[in-house]
């Protein structure tokens, strides 16, 4: 039982993991994450990579939509820009992976800034529709600019190589994914300890008064678009290098909606929420297909319901969380933690 803790300096009060207990649990979590690939089977490793790559994308969207309040229906397209950049740089220009990775992020950030450019004048619905248009236009480019993107057949890549070390299976790739997830989550967490993150939240909560407090709205909205799509680009690069292929069908509008669902289910305006949401939304489709797989013996056509059932469940999750638990899984987690924090004297 821990009744409370007292902080002696401002430094410790401002620390992210303020207490010895939380540092202890963080250490345990890190150790488990390092051990995981040695005990996990192929399927779990595949899923872990997928979840990690999705987490990076979800953290990016949450910074833009959850923290800075700028809704985006184009997140999948930004991930796609990152993915295509990585694939083109690797196959056409033979650039090494460690150079492709940041360049994919930068390219996506560049597109993010272009789309975010009008965000100073466009609010709410108008911005939402502008990002929708960006999604559709980029999708069109992916499919139709065949000389560069390979059209619907896409581009195939060979496995990435880091300093002569080839990441040719899911086990090796896991460590890359883990490192990138830790890097992105930490960077995002850091951002919200500084004036930049505070400015994002201020713009979301009351953009008018934020300007009178000295915040340059355009600059910070563009920052939000840039960071968000940079992470989307990283996620896209990791994704195509993991699958070793990129095709337009990976980045449809529905995928943008899936990312929105992630941050809603996980918790808008919460980094931890992005992680929960990404993991949850990676597991859900698998769970659905597992259940349908069990039904195949009784209903031979069960598998054909996979895709529509996923859509119904994504939609239901969005609606149910927004109506009943608008702060998402992160809030549920906080309540559970508080319960144990003072346990057994919770009343």
């Amino acid at each position: 039982m821990r009744i409370g803790h007292f902080k002696e300096t401002y430094v410790s009060d401002q620390a992210v993991f303020a207490t010895a207990t939380s540092r202890f649990w963080l250490g345990i979590l890190f150790a488990l994450l390092l051990l995981f690939p040695f005990v996990a089977g192929d399927y779990l490793l595949f899923m872990a990579n997928l979840a990690g790559i999705t987490i990076i994308g979800a953290v990016g969207l949450n910074i833009l939509t959850g923290f800075a309040g700028q809704i985006s229906l184009g997140h999948a397209a930004f991930i796609g820009v990152g993915g295509y950049t990585a694939a083109i740089l690797a196959t056409r220009f033979n650039l090494p992976f460690l150079i492709c990775l940041p360049l994919s992020g930068l390219m996506a950030a560049f597109f993010g800034i272009i789309v975010g450019g009008p965000s100073l004048r466009l609010k709410g619905l108008y911005l939402c529709i502008a990002t929708l248009a960006a999604q559709l236009i980029l999708e069109f480019v992916f499919v139709h600019w065949e000389s560069v993107t390979g059209g619907i057949r896409g581009i195939n890549l060979s496995p990435p190589e880091i300093c002569g070390y080839v990441l040719d299976n899911d086990f090796k790739y896991y460590f890359l994914t883990l490192a990138m997830v830790i890097l992105c989550v930490t960077a995002a967490r850091n951002l919200f300890r500084t004036r930049v993150g505070r400015a994002f939240i201020a713009i979301r909560d009351r953009d008018i008064s934020a300007e009178l407090m000295g915040i340059n709205l355009l600059r910070y909205k563009l920052y939000a678009f840039a960071v968000s799509s940079f992470m989307a680009g990283l996620s896209g690069c990791l994704w195509v290098n993991f699958l070793k292929t990129v095709t337009p069908e990976h980045f449809p509008l529905m995928e943008s909606v899936r990312y929105l669902a992630m941050i809603i289910v996980g918790g808008m305006g919460s980094i931890l929420g992005s992680i929960f949401g990404a993991i949850f939304m990676t597991i859900v489709p698998e769970a659905i297909s597992t259940v349908l797989g069990l039904l195949v013996n009784t209903f031979p056509t069960a598998m054909s319901f996979l895709f529509p059932l996923q859509q119904v469940i994504f939609g239901l999750l969005i609606v149910i969380f927004l109506v009943f638990e608008p702060h998402g899984l992160a809030e549920i987690w906080r309540r559970i933690k508080n319960y144990f924090h003072l346990w057994p004297f919770e009343h």
């Binding site: 939509t65 309040g69 809704i71 709410g124 619905l125 939402c128 529905m254 909606v257 929105l260 669902a261 809603i264 319901f305 895709f307 529509p308 059932l309 996923q310 859509q311 119904v312 469940i313 994504f314 939609g315 239901l316 999750l317 969005i318 609606v319 927004l322 109506v323 608008p326």
Partner: peptide
């Protein structure tokens, strides 16, 4: 659905209708 969303931020209401469209699309295909 929408009655429960009265007074919620615009962005949430937009997303509820996006969720709804996903539900209807899936149901129709089923």
């Amino acid at each position: 659905i929408l009655r429960h969303m009265l007074g919620q931020p615009n962005i949430s209401i937009i997303m509820v209708t996006i969720g709804l469209s996903s539900i209807l699309l899936g149901i129709a295909e089923i």
